[in-house]
C-alpha cells in the first residue's frame, strides 16, 4: 500500500455544527408540539389527570415518610395529621436498637448483588446464544425458557423449598440465591434487544474476524447498554424487594433480608407500633431510590444516543 493520495476530489461536506442541529431540532419539536394543541379545556383536563396520578403514587409514600417521624400516639389521631408535630427521630433509633438492622442491610446487599449479577450474566449470555449463535434445537430451547416465564413463582415454591431444605441450605445465602437466579425474563428481554440490532454490523464484525465473545463484548453489548441498564435496574429493584422466598428460607438475622426483618419487627411489636416499621421502610427504599435516580440518567442518555439515526 503506498501513501500517495488518490484521484478524485474529496467531498467538501462537513458535519453541521451542534448549535445549528439543536436549533433545527427545537424548531421541529415546536412544529410537532403545536399539532397536539387542543385548546384550554383539554389542556386543563390533561393536567388534572396528571395531578390525580401523581397523588395516587405520592400520597402513600408521603404518609410513610411522615409517619416515620411521628410519635407513637400521633399515628392514629383523627383528623389525620399531615405533618409530624412534634417531629421525632425516636422511631429510627428504636429501629436500629430493637432489631439487628445492620445485619438485615448486609444480607439484603449480599443477596441482591449476587442474585442480580447472576441474573444479568446468565440473561445476557443465554440471550446472546439464543439470538446470534446458530445451533440445532435453538428455537426449542427458547420455547422452554419462555415457558418458564408462564409458571408463577408461587407454584414452584413448594418443590423448591423441599429441595433446598433437603440440601440443608435453609438459613444460608446459597439457599436463597441459587433458586432465585433463574432468568427467563432477562433472556427474553435481551434476546429481543439483540435481534433488533442492525444485522449488518454483526456481519461486519464477523467478517472482521471477531470471535463469539469478542463480538459480544466489543460490538453487541456497547450497542445494548440502555436495555441492559433497564434490565439491571428492574432486576436489582425486584431482588431488593423480594419477599416470599427469603422469608421462607430465613429464620433469623443470619440470612434474613430487610423486608423480612421488617416483618420480624412488626411481629415483635404487634400491629399498633407502626413508627419503627415506617422508619425501616423509608431506609429500605433509600438505596433503590438513589440507584434509580443515578441509573435513570444513564438509561435516558443511552436511549437517545442509540435510537436516533442522523
Amino acid at each position: 500500500m503506498s501513501t500517495s493520495t488518490i484521484v478524485g476530489t474529496v467531498d467538501e461536506e462537513k458535519t453541521p455544527p451542534a448549535a445549528d442541529r439543536r436549533r433545527r431540532r427545537r424548531a421541529a419539536h415546536n412544529v410537532e408540539a403545536s399539532t397536539h394543541n387542543r385548546g384550554p379545556v383539554w389542556t386543563a383536563a390533561g393536567y388534572v389527570g396528571m395531578v390525580l396520578v401523581l397523588l395516587v403514587v405520592a400520597v402513600p409514600l408521603f404518609w410513610i415518610l411522615v409517619t416515620s417521624f411521628k410519635e407513637r400516639g400521633d399515628i392514629y389521631v383523627r383528623p389525620a395529621q399531615w405533618w409530624p408535630e412534634p417531629a421525632t427521630g425516636q422511631n429510627y433509633s428504636e429501629l436500629t436498637t430493637r432489631i439487628p438492622f445492620s445485619d438485615y442491610v448486609r444480607n439484603s446487599v449480599i443477596i441482591t448483588a449476587a442474585t442480580s449479577l447472576a441474573k444479568i450474566i446468565l440473561g445476557v449470555l443465554s440471550a446472546y446464544a439464543l439470538s446470534l449463535m446458530r445451533f440445532p434445537g435453538r428455537s426449542i430451547v427458547f420455547i422452554v425458557v419462555i415457558a418458564a416465564l408462564m409458571v408463577p413463582n408461587q407454584i414452584t415454591v413448594i418443590s423448591n423449598y423441599a429441595l433446598v431444605a433437603q440440601l440443608g441450605w435453609r438459613n444460608t445465602y446459597q439457599g436463597i440465591i441459587i433458586p432465585l437466579a433463574g432468568v427467563a425474563f432477562g433472556t427474553f428481554l435481551m434476546r429481543n434487544q439483540f435481534l433488533n440490532l442492525p444485522g449488518e454490523i454483526i456481519e461486519a464484525a464477523r467478517l472482521d474476524g471477531a470471535g463469539p465473545m469478542k463480538l459480544l463484548w466489543r460490538v453487541v453489548m456497547p450497542m445494548s447498554w440502555p436495555t441492559l441498564v433497564a434490565f439491571a435496574l428492574i432486576t436489582v429493584v425486584s431482588e431488593w424487594n423480594e419477599y416470599l422466598w427469603p422469608f421462607l428460607m430465613s429464620d433469623d438475622e443470619s440470612t434474613a433480608t430487610l423486608p423480612v426483618g421488617l416483618t420480624f419487627l412488626q411481629n415483635n411489636d404487634g400491629v399498633t407500633n407502626w413508627g419503627p416499621v415506617m422508619a425501616g421502610t423509608v431506609l429500605a427504599m433509600l438505596p433503590i431510590l438513589v440507584l434509580f435516580l443515578f441509573l435513570q440518567r444513564q438509561m435516558i442518555k443511552g436511549l437517545t444516543a442509540g435510537a436516533v439515526k442522523s
Binding site: 442492525p198 449488518e200 454490523i201 461486519a204 464484525a205 467478517l207 472482521d208 460490538v219
Partner: peptide, 17 residues
Amino acid sequence: PRDRDIAMVFQSYALYP
C-alpha cells in the same frame, strides 16, 4: 466468514457506533 480474508463495505456502512 472470518477465515475467508474477505472485507466487505456495506450499504449502511455498518460502522461500530
